[in-house]
Simulated assay, not measured.
Amino acid sequence: MPHKLPTLPEPEIHHISPAEAVEHIQALLEAKQERVRQGPTWPGAVTTQPSPDTPDPHAPMPAAGGGLSSEAAFGHALAHERGDQSKRKG
């Protein structure tokens, strides 16, 4: 007969209220925002604040060619460069 191992008691689960959850999330968000305000902390990190004249590196780039997308501007030329690749041969 196999020897049965004793079972451990389940740890008691402590539930928090929705209001407590909101407080925790707000505290985490405030801590994150403070870290962002302080800037990067790794060695060699640049901690300068961007000036109003500096473009946002994360902002979307304006469309080139008077509003054409890159596919519209260059897609026609690329299709001709591919030549007969898409056609079946013999």
Rank of each mutant, 00 (worst) to 15 (best):
M1I: 04
M1G: 12
P2C: 09
H3Y: 14
H3V: 15
K4L: 15
K4E: 15
K4F: 14
L5H: 12
L5P: 15
P6R: 13
P6N: 10
L8P: 12
L8F: 13
L8Y: 12
E10D: 15
E10N: 13
E10T: 14
E12D: 09
I13W: 10
I13S: 11
I13C: 10
H14P: 10
H15T: 11
I16W: 08
I16R: 08
I16H: 10
S17E: 05
S17I: 06
P18V: 11
A19D: 09
A19I: 13
E20D: 04
E20C: 07
E20I: 06
A21P: 08
A21M: 10
A21Q: 11
V22P: 04
V22T: 11
E23P: 11
E23A: 15
E23Q: 15
H24I: 10
I25L: 07
A27W: 14
L28W: 12
L28F: 09
L29T: 14
A31R: 06
K32C: 13
K32Q: 14
K32H: 12
Q33F: 09
Q33E: 07
E34W: 04
E34Q: 07
R35L: 07
V36D: 12
V36W: 06
R37M: 03
R37A: 01
R37D: 00
Q38Y: 03
Q38I: 02
P40R: 01
P40A: 00
W42E: 07
W42M: 08
W42I: 12
W42Y: 14
P43C: 01
P43M: 02
P43N: 05
P43R: 05
G44P: 03
A45Q: 03
A45K: 01
A45Y: 06
A45C: 06
V46R: 02
V46E: 05
T48H: 02
T48N: 00
Q49M: 11
P50M: 00
P50H: 04
P50W: 01
P50A: 00
S51A: 08
S51G: 06
P52M: 00
P52N: 05
D53N: 13
T54Y: 02
T54Q: 03
P55T: 12
P55I: 10
D56S: 04
P57M: 05
H58Y: 15
A59P: 03
P62S: 03
P62V: 07
A63Q: 03
A64M: 05
A64W: 01
G67W: 04
G67R: 00
G67H: 03
L68R: 02
S69G: 02
S69A: 01
E71D: 13
A73V: 01
A73Y: 03
F74Y: 05
F74W: 03
G75R: 01
L78Q: 07
H80V: 10
H80T: 11
H80K: 09
E81P: 08
R82D: 08
G83R: 02
G83H: 01
D84S: 15
D84Q: 10
Q85P: 06
S86L: 14
S86Q: 12
S86D: 14
K87Q: 14
K87C: 14
R88P: 15
K89W: 09
G90N: 09
G90E: 11
